[in-house]
Computed example of a mutant assay.
Amino acid sequence: MNILITGAHGFIARNLIHVLQSKELSFLQPLKLYTYDRRDAIEDLKEYLTDCDFIIHLAGVNRPQKAQEYEEGNKGFTQFICDELIQHRNTCPILMTSSIQAVLDNDYGRSKRAAENCLRSLWQKNGNKIYLYRLPNVYGKWCRPDYNSVVATWCYHLARNQDIQIHDEQKEITLCYIDDVITEILNCLQGKATVADESDFYKVEPTTRCRLSELRNILYSFKNEQQNLTLPNQTAFVKKLYATYLSYLPQENLSYSLTMHQDARGSFTEMFHMDTYGQVSVNVLHPGIVKGNHWHMSKNEKYVVVAGEGNVKLRNLYDDDHKLLTYHLSANKMEVVDIPPGYLHCIENTGTQDMVVIIWANEVFDETYPDTYYKEV
C-alpha cells in the first residue's frame, strides 16, 4: 500500500509515521510512505497524488497570522488535493482530520466545514471513499506547547516549575489521546473505522470530558512525584496524562536520587508510593545478615530476590504448632513469596554476595501506624 500523509511535520503525523515505520503491519505490506508538508515541493505532492492508494490528510491551518490563511490552508489545500485526484482518476480513499470547532461560526470553523465539503464533493464526482473525523482536543507526546493544546502547554510549564494560567476553572473540554487517534487511523486503513452517531462522520474512542480545574489538579499532582515518590493512581485517563507529562520533562530531570537508609546490615530504599497500590522498595542484605523478625496485622507483602540468594522464613501465629516455613530464593530462579498478615517473617542472606530483594507492600508506610510488631521467627 502506498500511503500519502499530509501535514507530515505535525503532532499527529509524527506519531503516526513513527508507528507505521516501526510496526510490521501485515495488512499494509509492502508499505511505501509518501509524506508532504508545506515546506516541501508542490511538484512532489502532485506526483504522490497520482500513485497513492490511501491519503491521510492531516494538514491544516489553525494559528495563522491572517484570517484569510484559514481559507487557503484548510479549504484551498484540500480542494487542490481533490482536483489532482480527479485529474488523474485516482479513486483512493481519503481520511481527513477536521475539528469539533467546525460547528462554530468563525473563520476557522467555516474553513474546516468547507474542507469537509470539498471531500464530499470529491466522493460524488470521483467515487473516493471519505472518512471525516471531527477531532476534539488531542494530547500526548510531541504536541507543541504554547500553541493550541492546553495539555501540552500546562505539562511543559509545570515540568519547568513555571506557573500555569487558567481563566475559567469551570470550562469543560473534550480530550482524546494520541495513541487512540493512531489506533483509529490504523483501524480505518483496515476498513474498520468507528462510525459516529451522526451524519457521515467517524470518531475516535474513548474521549474524556473534564473541567479545566480538574485537569489542572491532576497535572499538579504529577509535579512533585520525584520528591515524594508517589505515583499517580492509574485510571485510564490519568495514565495517559501522566505519560504525556513525563514526555515534557527536561532531559536533565529524567533521573533523580533515592534516599538509602544504610547500616551495618545493608540498606533499605523506598522506590515508589502508590495511593491505592502500596509501595515498592529495595532491601539489600550483606552476607549472613537477617532482617525482619516481625509480623503485621493487615499489611501484606511480596518478596522477590533479584541478586544473590537467601531464605525467607515464616510462621503462622494462628497455628498452635507454629510450623516453620522456609523458602529458598535465588536470582537464578526468580519467584515470589507472599507474606500474609499474621505471619512472623524474616529474610536471611545465605550467600557470599549481597542479596537484593524487591519488596511490594500493599500500603505506603505510615509512621503513625506502622503495623509492624517485632518478634523472633
Rank of each mutant, 00 (worst) to 15 (best):
R211P: 09
V284K: 14
G308E: 02
N2E: 08
S221I: 02
S298E: 14
Q227N: 12
R38L: 14
Y277G: 11
E270T: 13
N126P: 09
I173R: 13
L175S: 01
I182M: 06
A243R: 10
V181G: 02
N311W: 12
I178T: 08
V336F: 08
Y277W: 14
R39K: 14
G127Y: 11
Y34L: 07
A159H: 07
T78N: 00
R39G: 10
R144E: 11
F201L: 12
A102D: 02
V290M: 11
H273R: 14
P340G: 06
L119C: 07
K375N: 11
R39I: 11
W154D: 02
Y177M: 09
L132H: 07
Y343T: 01
I3E: 03
D44I: 09
S221M: 05
R14F: 13
W154K: 05
Q21S: 13
T259N: 14
N2R: 08
E301R: 05
D275S: 14
N228W: 01
P206E: 04
G73A: 01
D53K: 14
S111D: 00
D168E: 15
R39D: 03
L249R: 07
L285D: 02
I359Y: 06
Q279L: 07
T326V: 14
N137H: 11
Q279N: 07
N362K: 07
T174S: 09
T50M: 13
I347R: 00
L16P: 01
Y256G: 04
T372D: 05
E43L: 12
K112H: 01
Y147E: 10
V304I: 10
R144C: 11
L329T: 05
T183P: 04
I359A: 03
H345R: 03
A193Q: 03
Q251C: 15
I12R: 04
V282N: 09
Q162W: 07
A152T: 03
A196K: 10
Y108R: 06
I42K: 14
D371A: 02
H273T: 08
G73E: 01
K299R: 11
G310A: 08
Q353M: 11
I17W: 01
T350S: 06
I218W: 06
D263N: 11
P206C: 06
I130N: 04
Q124N: 10
Y327D: 05
N90W: 00
R265Q: 10
L249K: 05
F201I: 10
G278R: 07
Y139N: 05
I289W: 00
M271D: 02
L122W: 01
P64D: 04
V284R: 13
Q21D: 13
G342E: 09
Y36D: 00
N349C: 01
G10T: 08
Q68W: 15
T153P: 04
D53Y: 12
I81L: 09
A115F: 03
F201E: 09
I5H: 06
